[in-house]
């Protein structure tokens, strides 16, 4: 029997990211303990959990912004713990950070163009076509094209942050709290877009406090509490899980059903 590492079970979707035993510490304080996580190709995987559970820390570690212990396997290749951010960008990982980190004194168009900076560096000259695709997803950005990023509203900023990340044509898109600080209507729009993005084949790791919205779009979910994964499963099951309902969805969700 062939048990070589690259043999893939034909039944299973190819694995995009596998995290084994990942721990992150800030000095002596360990913020994330021994996490295991998997993302299959074309899937939306969500990590939900309360404030301070280590969700952002986890993403920073995956992106290489934060040093970590443990194994990060991306498309079958183990990433060194000290791997630089730029390297991961080149390999098709993109992070839309919680703080958006836009270039405030630049136009929306320039922000988007810089999203394709690494593709430009390696010789791709298709930024304008990609930008048209981004405009199809976020028509609002096209209207605001020449405006400075700092003049945008909260929802538009999130759209720009996501649009900028898509300019890199990522294989794995990581979203950190896309709903943070946004009005309910806009949150709905953002999550609708996330669900639409799945059709383009990109794998998405969605980190959210808004568990209800996240579980609605996700295929699989993890619950992160005080740095540890306390629960995991297909999001259909998690929505019906008693602990999740009590802690994250509120009793009103199940009311009458």
């Amino acid at each position: 029997m062939n048990l070589s590492l690259d043999s893939v079970d034909p039944e299973e979707k190819p694995l995009v990211l596998e995290v084994r035993d990942l721990s992150v510490s800030y000095g002596k304080v360990e913020a994330v303990h021994h996490i295991n996580l998997k993302i299959n190709k074309g899937e939306i995987v969500t990590v939900i959990g309360p404030n301070g559970a280590g969700k952002t820390t986890l993403l920073c570690a995956l992106m290489g912004l934060q040093p970590a212990c443990g194994e990060i396997i991306y498309f079958g290749k183990t990433q060194g713990a000290d791997r630089r951010v730029e390297k991961r960008v080149r390999q098709g990982m993109t992070l839309v950070p919680e703080k958006r980190e836009l270039f405030g004194e630049m136009s929306v168009r320039d922000n988007l163009l810089l999203g394709a900076f690494d593709r430009y560096r390696v010789g791709h000259r298709d930024a304008l076509e990609t930008m048209d695709q981004v405009f199809d997803i976020f028509p609002r950005l096209q209207e605001r094209c020449e405006q400075m990023a700092s003049t945008l509203s909260g929802g538009e900023r999130q759209m720009l942050a996501m649009g900028r990340a898509l300019m890199a044509k990522p294989k794995l898109l990581m979203l950190d709290e896309p709903s943070l600080g946004l009005a309910p209507l806009i949150i709905k729009e953002i999550f609708h877009t996330v669900a639409e993005l799945k059709k383009t084949g990109v794998s998405i790791l969605l980190v959210e406090q808004n568990a209800r919205a996240a579980l609605q779009v996700a295929d699989y979910g993890y619950v992160l509490e005080t740095g540890e994964i306390s629960l995991e499963g297909p999001s259909r099951d998690l929505v019906n899980d008693k602990r999740v309902i009590e802690s994250y969805l509120g009793l009103s969700v199940r009311h009458g059903s």
């Binding site: 992106m63 950070p97 980190e101 690494d118």
Partner: peptide, 23 residues
């Protein structure tokens, strides 16, 4: 130019720039 913009981007937001692959 995109390299000039990348320089300005780094000046404005170092983390944002790194996430775009601008080392």
């Amino acid at each position: 130019t995109i390299y000039g913009k990348a320089l300005r981007a780094t000046a404005m937001n170092r983390t944002g720039a790194r996430l775009m692959g601008i080392s």
